[in-house]
Computed example of a mutant assay.
Amino acid sequence: MGFVAATVAEVTTLMAEDCGGRVAPEPGSRTITVTYHWDSATQRYMPDSDAFTLLAHENRQRY
Rank of each mutant, 00 (worst) to 15 (best):
S29D: 09
W38F: 15
T35S: 10
G2T: 03
S49C: 10
Q43C: 06
R62S: 09
F3M: 10
S49Y: 07
D50F: 02
D50L: 05
T31K: 11
G21I: 06
L55P: 00
T31W: 00
T7K: 13
P25K: 11
T33V: 06
G2C: 05
V34W: 01
P47Q: 01
F52Q: 03
V34N: 02
V8Y: 13
A5G: 03
H37P: 01
A24Y: 01
A51L: 06
G2Y: 04
T31M: 03
G21D: 08
D39S: 14
A56Q: 14
E26C: 00
T7A: 11
E26N: 07
M46Y: 00
G28F: 01
L14A: 11
V34A: 03
V11Y: 04
S29G: 14
A16L: 11
R30G: 00
V8K: 13
A24V: 04
E26L: 04
I32N: 00
R44W: 05
A24I: 02
A41P: 03
N59H: 12
R62D: 14
Q61W: 04
L54Q: 15
Y36H: 10
P27W: 01
L54Y: 05
L14T: 13
F3E: 15
D50Q: 05
Q61E: 11
R22A: 14
V8H: 10
M15N: 12
V8S: 11
D50H: 10
A9T: 11
R44M: 08
F52D: 01
V11M: 06
H37A: 07
D50A: 09
T53L: 09
R22G: 07
Y36E: 01
T53C: 01
A9F: 10
E17F: 12
E58C: 08
E58L: 06
A5R: 15
A56V: 07
A6I: 06
A24R: 15
T31H: 03
S29N: 14
M1T: 11
A41D: 14
P27Q: 13
A9R: 14
R22Y: 05
A6Y: 05
A6D: 07
G21R: 03
C19D: 06
F3D: 15
A24K: 14
T33D: 05
V8W: 06
Y63G: 09
A41I: 09
G20N: 07
M46W: 01
L14Y: 01
Y63K: 02
A24F: 04
E10I: 15
V23Y: 08
E17C: 09
D18K: 14
F52G: 01
A5I: 00
V4W: 02
A6S: 12
N59D: 12
C19T: 12
D48H: 08
C19A: 15
D48L: 03
L55A: 10
V8R: 12
G28R: 02
S29C: 04
T12N: 03
